[in-house]
Design a protein around this nucleic acid. Structure first.
Length: 188
DNA sequence: TAGGCCATCTGGTCCT
DNA sequence: AGGACCAGATGGCCTA
């Protein structure tokens, strides 16, 4: 486990550590637009970078870019909300990383000291799924018309079958089904 | 030292 | 309204 300089990141200015010359509360004027915030408050090297990001082409629900306002909230309240959001985001990313770890353990790969990166994990998982799919299609080759090679269409059929069983019987039922299929293929 | 990878912060958007 | 999701930015660590 390599150590990361996590503590050092606290030195970055954040909502929880607002800079005095940029009092966020000044925007709480009724009727004042926060648009200017998203367009103008860019400070290279700090956390303000609204105009560096073009949200064009991204999801916009008709109203365009508009930051949600908390008119009555104080700097302290916003600071608390920001910290809570940060914590939730951290937890979310931890969950995501746990899922990546589970995926790493589920896919066979050449064991090295170096752990698989996320992109490597996803790529290997995709390849593994493809390999398993082709194996299953080979196993069920007898079901195909004579001479027909397992194709993408049959792979799609397999996926359809998988989803159907998943919906009807849940993961446990699906596992039993796959086990059954496996034993059948061994007897053939 | 450059580049890859990662954790974290952040603010916009979507969803409930 | 508030949480979840997402992607950009930033900076630290590691390796070739």
């Amino acid at each position: 486990m390599k150590s990361k300089g996590k503590a050092a990141k606290q030195s970055r200015p954040t909502w929880s550590d607002p800079e005095p010359e940029l009092e966020p509360d000044t925007e709480a004027e009724p009727g004042s637009s926060e648009q200017e915030d998203s367009e103008a408050s860019v400070r290279i090297g700090c956390s303000w970078r609204g105009s560096l990001r073009s949200r064009e082409g991204k999801r916009q629900g008709g109203g365009g870019t508009r930051r949600r306002r908390h008119r009555s909230s104080t700097t302290k309240e916003r600071s608390i909300r920001r910290l809570e959001s940060n914590e939730r985001e951290r937890q979310r990313m931890h969950k995501l990383n746990n899922a990546f770890q589970a995926l790493r353990e589920a896919i066979p790969h050449v064991k090295t000291d170096k752990k698989l990166s996320k992109i490597e994990t996803l790529t290997l998982a995709k390849n593994y799924i493809k390999a398993l799919t082709s194996i299953i299609l080979d196993m069920s080759g007898a079901c195909l018309p004579a001479g027909e090679v397992p194709s993408e269409a049959s792979a799609a059929k397999l996926l359809q079958c998988y989803q159907k069983h998943l919906e009807e019987e849940g993961e446990e039922g699906l596992t039993q089904y796959l086990t059954h299929m496996h034993s059948l293929s061994q007897h053939s």
